[in-house]
């Protein structure tokens, strides 16, 4: 039947519908609602209540307050590794371990030369953190207030599933304390005293910018909302929803 013909037809109304048909329709509605509701309940509960509509959450979508975020301006990084060293001394990171590191990206240029960009990496404090989901003992969890992915050291059984699950290679096992160690934005060592994370302060090139994304006046907010810039996250395909952003700003 063509849509034009349908338009011409008279509305039959609902008066002539038998109660059997009405019941049938209602039943179908209930089944569909039930299936969706059931599916929603059964699906593994994620740690955020609402997933953001884009990579950077919009106003009204922030899951935390303060919603701590780090913005990395990687094109400014000179690979001096002061961030790595500051982190090591402030957080007592052993020689074999690292909470943060710097990778070197290289691509060929038109003049036969290369462009080198240094890419600092650290825990992404994901909003849907794979490490938190897999931990059998909730030894690693999202801080309810700030969204920082934290370790409860005494509860870590050392199964290393979080290390296997992390898409970013951000965790290592610290033999000295027998727990999996990771970046916590210096929550205990500096944030608690009102100071910025050690790597942020140590960086001479202002590569790492740290702040509260819910605060429109913060630098992280303005960096992530600057025209003519490109903002990205690492390994977005894993669905982990990172809180560490990279930008050309």
């Amino acid at each position: 039947m063509k849509i034009q013909e349908l338009k011409k037809m008279k509305n039959e109304g609902t008066r002539d519908l038998s109660s059997r048909e009405r019941r049938h329709f209602l039943k179908m509605g209930f089944i569909i609602t039930g299936v969706y509701l059931g599916g929603r309940v059964l699906s593994l509960a994620s740690t955020v209540k609402a997933a953001p509509s884009s990579m950077v959450p919009q106003q009204g979508e922030y899951s935390y307050s303060p919603h701590y975020t780090m913005v990395v301006r990687e094109q400014r990084c000179i690979d001096c590794e002061r961030c790595v060293e500051a982190c090591r001394s402030v957080n007592e990171v052993p020689e074999y371990g690292r909470r943060t590191m710097i990778h070197e990206k290289r691509r060929p240029m038109a003049d036969d030369g290369f462009e080198t960009v240094f890419m600092p990496i650290l825990c992404n404090h994901c909003n849907r953190p794979p490490c938190v989901r897999v931990c059998p003992t909730t030894a690693t969890y999202k801080d309810e207030k700030t969204g920082i992915v934290v370790m409860n050291r005494d509860r870590c059984i050392g199964c290393k599933t979080c290390m296997t699950a992390c898409p970013y290679n951000a965790r290592y096992f610290k033999e000295e304390g027998r727990y999996v160690d990771k970046c916590n934005f210096c929550r205990d060592t500096r944030l608690a005293q009102g100071e910025l994370p050690a790597c942020v302060t140590a960086c001479p090139a202002e590569v790492r910018i740290f702040g509260d994304l819910t605060d429109k006046k913060s630098r992280v907010y303005s960096l992530l909302h600057t025209p003519d810039t490109y903002v990205w996250v690492l390994r977005p395909e894993t669905g982990a929803l990172p809180n560490v952003y990279y930008t050309t700003a």
């Binding site: 059998p136 003992t137 909730t138 030894a139 059984i157 050392g158 290393k160």
Partner: peptide, 15 residues
């Protein structure tokens, strides 16, 4: 690595 923590942690921290 910390097998001995399992009995308690698996119960109080059940995920």
């Amino acid at each position: 690595e910390n097998t001995w923590r399992m009995p308690v942690a698996n119960v109080i921290g059940a995920n």
